[in-house]
């Protein structure tokens, strides 16, 4: 991308747009924190009792209550909460008795690894599938692709994962089972990024790498299927929109070869909204990972959140919610920026 021509009015408008954009990001972030704060307050469990236990003396109880700031008005409590979050203090996890932030940083890379791989595969398969579907709209390639997509749309992800585990791991033995690595390989690779597929080659441990691939293939495949179903469906409808435009007719009349009309002209224009689609699908995979990780015993953020849930470890649950929420907001911002970058009309 080359720099846009500089002119006062344009930049003025851009600045105004940027300011509005920034306000809406900040507002969304503020809303996220407000909602997690409210959720943290409506928990029917007394936060003081959770710390001191129910056999504590009344004086101890009172002291902890004051320490937690529970005697202050609600808005003041919220202000304290905001201050702590901005310092990166999410509280301590009851389950692991470590700061929640440390836990999140340890578990998040595993989820990112899974969701990124799945989105990559889902996009590489889903976009061409959607294009083929749109070009052959109403004929059998279209029907096949749509039905394969609909199945992905309708199946519960945890159930599909469970069944895949039974078939490909237990019965056929093609892939490795639950978890990220076989027990034997655990701890052989020093943590750099926290992502096994990157750390293992960095350490030169190719055997570990192969084992990691063996483990990630099934959960990533299941998630990729869901991502492909969504992306191919959106690509199809975007392509149908483009293919009925007049510039396509013009290109065809000019004698541009058909493959170029489809893959360069039409897809080139559909690419812009597709960026948003892929970003949305990436976000929903980070979420869908909650259920997949449970099935595949994948030590990621989703499993951390659900396990904390069962131990009513609200600090950990809310910390995880905030992290995923921030990633969501970040993805929205990113896709918005890419949209502006790719679409000359928004400049």
């Amino acid at each position: 991308m080359t720099a846009a021509p500089v002119s006062g009015g344009l930049w003025g408008r851009r600045l105004a747009g940027g300011a509005g954009f920034l306000t809406s990001i900040l507002l969304t972030f503020f809303g996220l924190l407000a909602v997690t704060f409210v959720i943290g307050r409506v928990v029917p469990i007394d936060p003081v009792l959770a710390i001191v236990g129910d056999r504590a003396l009344p004086e101890v109880y009172e002291r902890v209550r004051l320490e937690l700031g529970l005697d202050k008005p609600l808005w003041h409590q919220f202000a304290i909460y905001l201050g702590k979050i901005f310092e990166g203090d999410f509280g301590t996890s009851v389950l692991t008795s470590r700061p929640v932030l440390d836990d999140l940083l340890r578990f998040f890379p595993a989820t990112i690894e899974l969701a990124t791989l799945a989105t990559l595969v889902g996009t590489l398969l889903g976009v061409p599938a959607g294009v083929v579907s749109a070009v052959h709209a109403g004929r059998w390639p279209d029907h096949v692709i749509r039905i394969v997509g609909l199945i992905g749309y309708s199946a519960p992800v945890f159930w599909l994962g469970l069944m895949a585990l039974v078939v490909f791991y237990a019965k056929l033995g093609w892939v490795a089972g639950p978890g990220r690595l076989d027990l034997f390989y655990d701890g052989l690779v020093p943590t750099v990024t926290g992502m096994m597929l990157i750390d293992a080659p960095l350490a030169g441990e190719w055997e570990v790498f192969r084992n990691a691939v063996d483990h990630i293939i099934l959960p990533a495949g299941i998630l990729a299927y869901f991502s492909m179903a969504y992306i191919s469906r959106m690509t199809r409808s975007l392509m149908l929109g483009e293919l009925s435009q007049e510039y396509i007719l013009t290109a065809r009349i000019k004698g541009v070869p058909e493959w170029r009309v489809i893959w360069r002209h039409a897809l080139g224009n559909a690419m812009v909204p597709l960026v948003t689609v892929v970003a949305l699908s990436y976000g929903s995979l980070l979420e869908g990972a909650v259920l997949t990780e449970t099935v595949f015993a994948w030590p990621g953020l989703g499993r951390y959140i659900t396990e904390s849930l069962f131990n009513v470890d609200m600090n950990a649950v809310l910390g995880g919610t905030i992290v995923v929420g921030c990633v969501f907001i970040g993805l929205n911002v990113l896709s918005d920026l890419l949209y502006r970058l790719l679409d000359p009309r928004t400049r």
């Binding site: 507002l27 996220l32 959720i39 928990v43 659900t306 929420g325 969501f328």
Partner: peptide
């Protein structure tokens, strides 16, 4: 604005947190 804020949230995770509470 309120709608947009809620629209930007991760749905399943938020539902999880609500049920947890």
């Amino acid at each position: 604005r309120l709608t947009d804020i809620f629209l930007a949230f991760p749905r399943l995770i938020l539902a999880l947190a609500f049920v947890a509470a």
